[in-house]
Design a protein around this nucleic acid. Structure first.
Lengths: 107, 107
DNA sequence: CGTGTAAGGAATTCTGACACG
DNA sequence: CGTGTAAGGAATTCTGACACG
């Protein structure tokens, strides 16, 4: 069933049909790192149904006035939120949270 | 979920990848009425995941030595079997089973 | 920033035919 | 019958750019 959802097999024309977005919009959202279609050896893009769902979601947010940048940020937060406490500790030790901490300390 | 399975959105290249059949084979099975992809205004074929499953099934039967004709017949029987008694009665009244009956009567 | 469009080229797909068996 | 292949053309997709705002 959902083995299909992740398969990168749809040409951009089918995605246009399914999302009601233009090719330009679809390629632009990719440029802004909101989706990542697969490329064939010839350079043709192939999308998954999951990409289609993401695009429909992106489309709604854009209509609500959100920027592609903020949409991208929201994505990152969702991903970040799922990391465990131990992972957070590891990242702190790795110095990746230092900047944030320093800014907080500076009052 | 399974709304995707019926959507005719896959280009033949993706079907080749998913079924491991050649374009020639896929088009030939269509010629033998085993599958019916959709055609875009430009003439390009678009398949569904359901078509892909059918093709994998067809492929297995061919390997078992079955002919495209017999595979087509099996399909028809499956379809016929699912009609209800009332539908059979309706078809009899409509004269669609007359030929079959006449042949039986002729002993 | 987000999207439309014209431009030219490259990749993809299509059909009809010949071949083999 | 089922499948491979070379051939030529048509449809599809791609990139980079200019435009508007």
């Amino acid at each position: 069933m959902s083995i299909y959802k992740e398969k990168k097999v749809l040409p951009i024309s089918s995605v246009v049909e399914l999302t009601e977005l233009s090719e330009r919009q679809i390629r632009y959202y990719e440029e802004r790192n909101l989706i990542s279609p697969l490329r064939t050896s010839g350079g043709t893009r192939k999308y998954s149904f999951n990409d289609v769902e993401k695009l429909i979601d992106i489309s709604k947010k854009i209509k609500e006035g959100k920027s592609t940048f903020s949409i991208r940020q929201d994505e990152k937060i969702k991903t970040t939120r799922t990391i465990s406490d131990s992972e957070i500790r590891r990242q702190m030790l790795a110095g990746q949270l230092n900047v944030t901490f320093r800014n907080h300390m500076k009052k």
